[in-house]
Simulated assay, not measured.
Amino acid sequence: MKVSLIVPLLFTAACMAVPAGSVEAGQGSASQTVATPPAPPPPPCQDEIYHAFDFWLGNWDVYDPAGNLVGTNSITSAESGCLLIEHWTNTGGGTGQSYNFYDPGTGQWRQLWVSAGSIIDYSGGLTEEGVMRLEGEIHAQGTGAVAPFTGEWTPNDDGSVTQHFRQQSTDTGEWSDSFVGRYVKQAKE
């Protein structure tokens, strides 16, 4: 009885010791083949287009055209460089945030701004001059009013960035400045 159990056990042990697919045809013996693992995929959002707005990254003091401080803004990179997140605080304590990203489906940059006063959703891209220009709509919170809106971010030679917002009047069709600010990098502590 013991002999009849030993043979099947030895056969089973021998089969378990040889990995499946490791016996090469025509060789009659077991040899280990080493498969090359597939190359890992490249990191996301590494193409140049995903970094077209990186000139806006940093911690900024923001000034109006008269040189008065109007707020601070922190722009950070997130999600492996796929997203820029804005955190704005004006000198009166008002805040707002935006998500900024390149949308490969449309081939455009997009910003979605949300504050207690408005929601802005617009898209676009870099002009030939290197200005980030976005076009869309501003939606007033509470009233539901909607108007065409544009935003431009211009990197300046001194490292500052000029931000220029314009809004179209739904009554007259006239465009007017909604905000003009000069971003100056905060001193590193």
Rank of each mutant, 00 (worst) to 15 (best):
P43C: 11
P43D: 14
C45V: 06
C45L: 03
C45S: 09
C45F: 09
Q46K: 04
Q46V: 14
D47V: 11
D47W: 14
E48T: 10
E48V: 06
E48C: 08
E48Y: 08
I49D: 07
A52R: 01
A52E: 05
A52I: 00
F53W: 07
F53Y: 04
F53Q: 02
D54E: 11
D54C: 02
D54S: 03
F55Y: 06
G58K: 00
G58W: 00
N59S: 15
D61H: 05
D61K: 03
Y63E: 01
Y63K: 00
D64N: 10
D64Y: 10
D64M: 05
P65V: 01
P65N: 03
L69R: 06
V70A: 09
V70T: 12
G71C: 07
S74F: 14
S74H: 15
I75R: 07
T76P: 12
A78T: 10
E79R: 11
G81L: 05
G81S: 10
C82Y: 09
L83G: 06
L84F: 06
L84I: 13
L84V: 08
I85C: 12
I85V: 15
E86M: 06
E86F: 05
E86T: 12
E86G: 06
H87S: 15
W88F: 11
W88S: 01
W88N: 03
T89N: 05
T89V: 05
N90Q: 07
T91Y: 10
T91H: 07
T91C: 08
T91Q: 14
G92P: 08
G93D: 15
G94W: 05
G94Q: 14
G94P: 12
G94L: 14
G96K: 10
G96A: 15
S98M: 04
N100P: 10
N100M: 07
F101I: 07
F101K: 04
Y102L: 04
Y102R: 04
Y102Q: 07
D103G: 01
D103K: 02
P104Q: 04
P104E: 11
P104D: 08
G105Y: 02
T106A: 01
G107L: 08
Q108A: 06
R110Y: 08
Q111P: 00
L112M: 06
L112I: 10
L112S: 03
W113K: 00
V114M: 14
V114E: 15
V114H: 12
S115E: 13
A116Q: 15
A116P: 07
G117A: 06
G117N: 10
G117F: 13
S118V: 08
S118I: 07
I119H: 02
I120M: 05
D121W: 00
G125E: 02
T127H: 03
E129A: 09
G130C: 04
V131M: 03
L134D: 11
L134I: 12
E135K: 03
E135S: 14
E135I: 09
G136A: 06
E137H: 13
E137R: 08
I138P: 09
I138N: 12
H139S: 14
H139N: 15
Q141Y: 11
G142T: 07
G142F: 09
G142A: 09
G142S: 12
G144C: 11
G144F: 11
